[in-house]
């Protein structure tokens, strides 16, 4: 029938245009980064170091090339050695009981007091065993700057706010023990909000979730109290700004602003999407990320449930509408041809 032929032509050109401006254009605009499935083995870090060497090789100024290339080569060696050691420690049998004693050292800073130390508030560790990956925790205890892939920020990775850990927990067995303790004793049933607060909330606000860098904003009785709290938040933000270079963005509707694959790869290795960013790798487990993602989707797309509840009814209404309209049309046109 002629009408169907015309419809096919219209649909064809419409879909070609849609394909061109949506899937095709976006595939050309954004570089592809593959997810490492929340495995922290330093693969991406070593690849980045390799790429830096390739870039250095193209420098034309011979003197500059020599210095940059030398530094890049050293970094590659350091990265390879570091992740190889992490892999070795990972194979050790950790003793959670022995780890508990060493863990006491952590409590000096990670005590939940909410006091900024060297730029950020040290995270609470109550849920660390559920949130963070084992390999990542090992790497973090060995060298926090290397583990979170922000060593480019520090001339000496000891300068990392947690850099002194290297003098506190020194042997591979000690590291394995502490990690075993965290992974067995510091586990909890996570909720999306807690996961977000622990993993992201000390640097990132989420104003749609009523969260600042100091946690949930309570209701205040007087304006003075509210302003005093606001000043505290601003002070904390200034400290974070000084440490990170800029205030990390509010994450209220980040889930709408970035694609799912971007978020998943970014969280595993921020450098992969934003080279030279000061954002550290967080080391979330797949399950921990699932919780963070759930929270971001809740604040970023709060109407999802309502949409899915209402959608079918509206569509069914219009299907019935169309069927009735068809019968009317048929009755009106029956004597015309």
């Amino acid at each position: 029938m002629k009408e169907f032929k015309i419809l096919a032509v219209v649909a064809f050109f419409t879909l070609v245009t849609y394909w061109g401006v949506e899937p095709f254009a976006h595939s050309q605009m954004h570089k592809e980064v593959e997810s490492n499935n929340f495995v922290y083995d330093g693969k991406a870090d070593i690849e980045e170091a390799n790429n830096a060497i390739e870039v250095a090789k193209n420098i034309t100024d011979a003197k500059k090339k020599a210095t940059v290339l030398d530094a890049a080569n050293k970094k590659l060696v350091a990265k390879k050695a570091f992740w190889a050691e992490v892999s070795q420690i990972s194979k050790l049998q950790g003793n959670a009981v022995a780890g508990e004693a060493s863990f006491a050292l952590c409590m000096a800073c990670h005590n939940g007091s909410g006091v900024n130390m060297g730029g950020v508030v040290p995270p609470k560790l109550d849920n660390a065993g559920s949130l963070y990956d084992k390999n990542y925790l090992i790497a973090l205890l060995k060298d926090p700057a290397m583990a979170s892939n922000v060593d480019h920020k520090y001339a000496d990775t000891m300068m990392h706010p947690m850099g002194t850990i290297k003098t506190m927990i020194t042997t591979p067995q000690q590291i394995a023990d502490v990690v075993a303790f965290i992974k067995t004793k510091k586990v909890a049933k996570l909720t999306p909000e807690v996961a977000f607060e622990d993993a992201c909330g000390r640097c990132h606000a989420n104003r749609y979730g009523n969260l600042t860098q100091l946690g949930a904003t309570p209701k205040f009785k007087t304006e003075q109290e509210a302003l005093a709290h606001r000043v505290k938040v601003l002070d904390e933000q200034d400290r974070i700004k000084a440490y990170m270079g800029k205030l990390p963005p509010d994450l209220s509707i980040m889930s709408r602003a970035r694609s799912e694959i971007y978020m998943e790869t970014f969280i595993q290795n921020p450098q992969s999407q934003l080279p030279n960013t000061s954002m550290p790798r967080v080391g979330l487990t797949s399950e921990g990320y699932g919780m963070v993602k759930a929270y971001l989707e809740k604040t970023g797309d709060p109407s999802k449930d309502a949409r899915h509840a209402l959608g079918p009814w509206v569509i069914v209404f219009f299907i019935i509408f169309t069927m009735l309209a068809y019968l009317w049309k048929k009755s009106q046109w029956k004597d015309l041809h």
Binding site: I319, Y326, K329, W333
Partner: peptide, 15 residues
């Protein structure tokens, strides 16, 4: 009558 029928199909797609 024909317009409204076509409109019905359009609204199914639209919604």
């Amino acid at each position: 009558s024909k317009d409204i029928f076509v409109m019905g199909i359009y609204f199914v797609l639209f919604f």
